[in-house]
Design a protein around this nucleic acid. Structure first.
Lengths: 149, 149
DNA sequence: CACCTAAATGAAAATGATTTTCATTTATAA
DNA sequence: TTATAAATGAAAATCATTTTCATTTAGGTG
């Protein structure tokens, strides 16, 4: 979803379109990486030094409950976000070097899910899947020689 | 792994086997649920009221770096743990009602992983997979009527 | 078995992330 | 324009986690 579409969704839901929100949405949709509140705050500093970290938190919450964000689980943090490119079932491949995120579809976990439900009696309603690795750029960079093995 | 095996692993690694650590290991291996530091602390209160929350944190860290724990990602917390039953590649099926965790093997994500690596140039080195749902007990319980649909 | 020592513990303080409070500002509908 | 509810920013509060430090203890050694 483009920044424009996100803005439209917010308006539709009755939220006001403030310049702070615009700025935060722009940062998110311009970035191919997963970002935390602090990351976004840092990136806003240049162009919009007035925006407070609290507003970043609040806007992220609002975007999330509007279904406009994806969460990424990295290390011991579950609070890294990126904008949802489209509203289809997908998962993420994440570079542990630079944080770049690539979306992919076709997880084909339905059969496994059915098998598990049958075996355990659970009613399974969703799943979490992520692949972690290093992108080609990070593999090539000098700093990561030790990671190329 | 049983509490006894965990204790043996700690000794082998040169850690002292204190009664606090024993107690924490017992709580973990007796529970079929994922537990946070605070959960464990709460469960220790009766039998070992002297144990401090700090010790729980420290013991969890030590168990984790010894490869004796599995992490579970729930909501916005990535710090819920359970003891690793065996040292084989497996994932978890988690009940969002009571926290019960069922291990399963056979994720068969290798092909998908290869496809993604080929398509993106990433070197993928691990993945995160979890299924979430409701166990049969929680499905049956009165409190969860609305969740059974 | 008693002793020694490094490791482990607990209490309190420090830190860091996130949330709440509240007075002020602002987007938008009338 | 104007009115008003929503949004904002600063500061304070909260909560989880980590650090500090004085005291205790597990487990090896004599």
């Amino acid at each position: 979803m483009t920044g424009r579409e996100i803005a439209a969704t917010l308006k539709r839901r009755g939220y006001k379109l403030t310049c702070q929100r615009r700025a935060i949405i722009d940062v998110l949709s311009a970035s191919g990486k997963h970002l935390t509140s602090a990351d976004i705050y840092a990136r806003l500093k240049d162009e919009h030094p007035g925006i407070g970290l609290v507003t970043v938190y609040r806007t992220l919450e609002l975007l999330q409950e509007s279904g406009l964000l994806c969460e990424v689980h990295i290390g011991d943090s579950c609070r890294s976000y990126l904008n949802k490119k489209a509203d289809v079932h997908h998962h993420h491949l994440i570079c542990s070097g630079c944080g770049k995120v690539v979306d992919f579809t076709g997880c084909e976990l339905d059969k496994l899910q059915e098998r598990l439900a049958a075996e355990t009696g659970f009613k399974i309603d969703n799943h979490l899947l992520q692949f972690m690795g290093r992108c080609s750029k990070c593999l090539a960079s000098k700093e990561c020689q030790s990671c190329q093995s």
